[in-house]
Simulated assay, not measured.
Amino acid sequence: MRRSELVREVEWAVVDCPPRDVPRRLCRVLARGLPADGVTMSLLTDTPARQMLCASNQMATDLEEVQFTVQEGPCITAAETGEQTHLTDWDTGARQWPLFTAGFREKHPDVQGVHAFPLWFGDYVLGAVDIATRVPGGLAGDVIEEAAGAVDAVAQALLPAQQLLLEEDEYPPWEPADVVGAHWADTHRAIGVVAVKEEMNTDDALALMRARAFGSGQTLAEITADILRT
Rank of each mutant, 00 (worst) to 15 (best):
W97R: 05
V129E: 00
T81I: 09
V154G: 00
T81G: 00
R50F: 15
P98S: 03
M59C: 04
I223L: 00
L30M: 03
A211G: 11
A153H: 10
W90A: 04
A128G: 07
V22M: 11
E145L: 08
L53V: 01
D203I: 07
E145S: 11
E222K: 03
A157H: 09
P172S: 10
R2K: 15
V114D: 06
V154M: 09
E222V: 03
P35G: 07
V154L: 09
P173A: 09
R32S: 09
A102C: 08
S216M: 10
A31Y: 07
P18F: 05
T202N: 00
I131D: 01
V193Y: 12
G82V: 12
R2E: 12
P74D: 07
L139I: 01
Q163R: 13
G181S: 05
R210H: 10
V15T: 11
V14Y: 02
V10S: 06
I131H: 01
T133D: 06
A155H: 08
L87E: 04
R189G: 02
R189V: 02
I223M: 02
T101Q: 04
E199A: 13
L26W: 06
A182H: 04
R210G: 12
H188C: 06
L34N: 05
D204M: 05
I131K: 05
L139S: 02
P35D: 05
A128W: 01
A155Y: 03
L44F: 14
E72A: 07
V129L: 06
A128N: 02
V66K: 10
C75P: 10
E11L: 15
L63F: 02
N201S: 10
Q162M: 14
E222Y: 01
Q163Y: 14
T219G: 08
P18N: 01
T187K: 12
L26N: 02
D226W: 03
F117P: 01
V66S: 06
H108E: 09
Y124D: 15
D169I: 12
P23F: 04
G141W: 11
V194S: 01
V125C: 13
R134H: 09
G217A: 08
V125M: 11
A55H: 08
E167L: 15
P109D: 14
E72P: 08
T61C: 15
L87G: 00
M52G: 10
V125N: 04
S4F: 14
D130I: 02
L44W: 12
I144P: 00
E65P: 04
P19I: 08
V10R: 06
E175N: 09
A182P: 01
L34A: 08
R24S: 12
T61Y: 04
E198L: 10
A49Q: 04
M1W: 11
E64M: 09
V111H: 00
P136A: 12
T88L: 07
L126N: 11
V10T: 06
P74V: 06
A161M: 12
E145Q: 14
L206T: 01
A205P: 01
L206A: 00
A150H: 05
R212L: 09
Q96S: 15
F68Q: 05
V66E: 11
T88R: 13
E199V: 06
G122F: 08
V143L: 03
G93F: 09
A190D: 02
Q218F: 03
A55Y: 02
V39R: 00
Q67M: 03
L208S: 10
A78R: 03
G149T: 12
D123C: 10
